[in-house]
Design a protein around this nucleic acid. Structure first.
Length: 515
RNA sequence: UCCCUCAUAGCUCAAUUGGUAGAGCGGGCGGCUGUUAACCGCCAGGUUGCUGGUUCGAGUCCAGCUGGGGGAGCCA
């Protein structure tokens, strides 16, 4: 028996019928997954259901015939003549208990050989559960094995706690674990909340470029983008690499920020944001750094640092409100197994206003702490960047919740930040979060061309390279401001996960890009 | 990149002053049970990250390398 696999409607539905008893694994006929447009035959006699839908309203499904698809978490046999299969389709945290009785045709041959990782389709009736731990279960009338686990002995995901370090080595299978399933849903929930927040407030999502010809976007090492033949690099007469022969006819890199580009659209659409991947080629080996990470960068016209800070606070509160409302199941897991205080932390962030503090006042607080005997490894001095330990003191010890630190010395901040009237500081802000450090970095931008040019010169940058950025200040310039929110750091803060490598599907870090 | 630390079965870990490798989980088989981190018994499973050195003898000591973790810097 060979089932046609053409995917054509009409043919497939009927030819998918097959015997369930016996048959070696090797000879098993591959299942044809009915295309959606042929599914009405099935819909007519049973629901096609996600585990989330079923478990979110179990009583309304009681007594109904359903069809669920997913992957086996565990199987427990009872010699009373039935097996329990935990089925997960990733639609929610909980798995669905399937009860398969020995009267099923393929019980001995297949169901009793199910193990973690097997893909199955189950048809059956939703019934009240006899056991504890779940209110309903599905009494199977048919269990079809779609994909076996080739070698159960070495299937990397076992029904037991694994270390996150180990799971990074099997990043293609770690989405099947409780933790990473939860991370995937939380990440999606937060991303959609970001878009909803901005959309509801009249912002446009601007797709800023990934490849940039601007080699001075900001500090930090960039990844080169090139199609030149490494074994035969064209040279100029001075012996330098001849980038005029490269794909774009110039030297290009992966972007480290969408900000400069999004500012141009801000100067036309007023309220804009970017949300996409950014790339840093720094050799950073910490739990908070990735070479490829996602960042949200809004930019608002006719706005100052005050509105900028309020926007950042409102965005974070909106995201976390959505998280609590939509992913209570996953957050409960994080509270149970990862970080006991995570739900309380998210709730308190939503409930209380962020503390606002001038950099200068922050320094004064730190100096007062030292006077009272608090020990820091590094000295505190106005005009220098705060060390991690200083930031931690302010947000964790002094305030106990996020702090918006504002108006930094201009020497330690980027050239485009707006100079304050005191001549010493710029309208910059960082939001520091307990346990994480800097989660947001932003500023009001310098909209005055002469002052911008002076900073470009003072910092030894090439004015010509910023010609289009400077044009914005020549043609209808307006005060504007924006910030960057690190998406992975936000997820860490919400879930209590310890490492950014475990809140992104595939982490890119120095010496690590297997998947 | 710097400092500290780690690398033993598919996974999590043991192995005394250097004396030739062990448990739990997972897997296979059997038993038992409306089970739910199930339980009980048996079985299989290892070039101890790599390269070199010291030694009669190295999982153990030394050097280098590779990779992981923690901290720092850079930043989000």
């Amino acid at each position: 028996m060979t089932a046609p696999h053409t995917g054509e409607a009409g043919i497939v539905g009927k030819s998918c019928v097959r015997s369930h008893g016996g048959g070696s694994r090797a000879n098993r006929v591959p299942l044809c997954l009915e295309p959606l447009f042929a599914a009405h035959d099935y819909l007519a006699r049973m629901l096609d259901l996600s585990v989330a839908k079923l478990l979110s309203d179990p009583s309304s499904h009681l007594g109904k015939a359903v069809r669920v698809k997913g992957w086996v978490r565990t199987r427990r046999d009872s010699k009373a003549g039935l097996s329990f299969v935990q089925l997960s389709d990733g639609s929610c945290f909980d798995a669905l208990q399937i009860v398969a009785e020995s009267s099923l045709a393929n019980y001995a041959a297949e169901i009793q050989r199910l193990c973690a990782g097997c893909a199955i389709i189950v048809e059956g009736e939703v019934v009240p559960s006899h056991g504890k731990g779940q209110s309903v279960e599905v009494k199977a009338s048919r269990v079809e094995v779609i994909g076996w686990v080739a070698d159960p002995d070495t299937y990397p995901i076992q029904p037991k706690p694994h270390s996150f370090e180990y799971l990074r080595e099997v990043a293609h299978l770690r989405p099947r674990t409780n933790t990473f399933g939860a991370i995937g849903r939380v990440r999606h929930c937060l991303a959609m909340a970001v878009h909803r927040f901005f959309h509801e407030r009249g912002f446009c999502w601007i797709h800023t470029p990934i490849v940039t010809g601007n080699d001075c976007e900001g500090a930090g090492q960039m990844f080169r983008v090139s199609t030149l033949d490494f074994l035969n690099i064209p040279r100029t007469s001075e012996g330098k690499v001849d980038f005029s022969q490269d794909f774009f006819g110039r030297e290009t890199h992966l972007t480290v920020s969408g900000q400069l580009n999004v500012e141009t659209w801000c100067a036309a659409l007023s309220k804009v944001y970017t949300f996409g991947p950014t790339f840093r080629a720094e050799n950073s080996n910490t739990s908070r750094h990735l070479a490829e990470f996602w960042m949200i960068e809004p930019e608002i016209a006719f706005a100052s640092l005050v509105e900028d800070a309020q926007l950042a606070e409102d965005l974070l509160k909106f995201m976390f409100t959505a998280l609590l409302a939509e992913r209570g199941d996953d957050m409960k897991f994080f509270a149970d197994r990862i970080d006991k205080g995570c739900i309380a932390r998210v709730e308190s962030l939503v409930a209380s206003p962020f503390e606002r503090m001038d950099y200068s006042d922050g320094v004064r607080h730190l100096e007062a702490a030292i006077a009272k005997g608090h020990k820091f490894d590094y000295p505190v001095k106005w005009g220098t960047d705060l060390q991690s330990e200083h930031e931690r003191y302010l947000t964790e010890t002094l305030v106990g919740r996020p702090v918006i630190l504002m108006n930094y010395p201009k020497e330690i901040k980027a050239f485009y930040m707006r100079q304050n009237d005191d001549g010493k500081t710029v309208a910059a802000m960082d939001i520091l979060a307990p346990g994480i450090g800097e989660i947001v970095g932003g500023s009001q931008r310098e909209e005055r061309l002469d002052l911008l040019d002076r900073r470009i010169e003072e910092m030894g940058l090439d004015k010509a390279a910023y010609w289009w950025y400077r044009d914005l200040r020549r043609y209808g310039t307006v005060p504007h401001a924006g910030f960057g929110l690190g998406f992975e750091r936000t997820i860490i803060y919400a879930t209590g996960m310890a490492n950014v490598r475990d809140v992104i599907p595939f982490a890119r870090t120095p010496k690590s890009c297997e998947f």
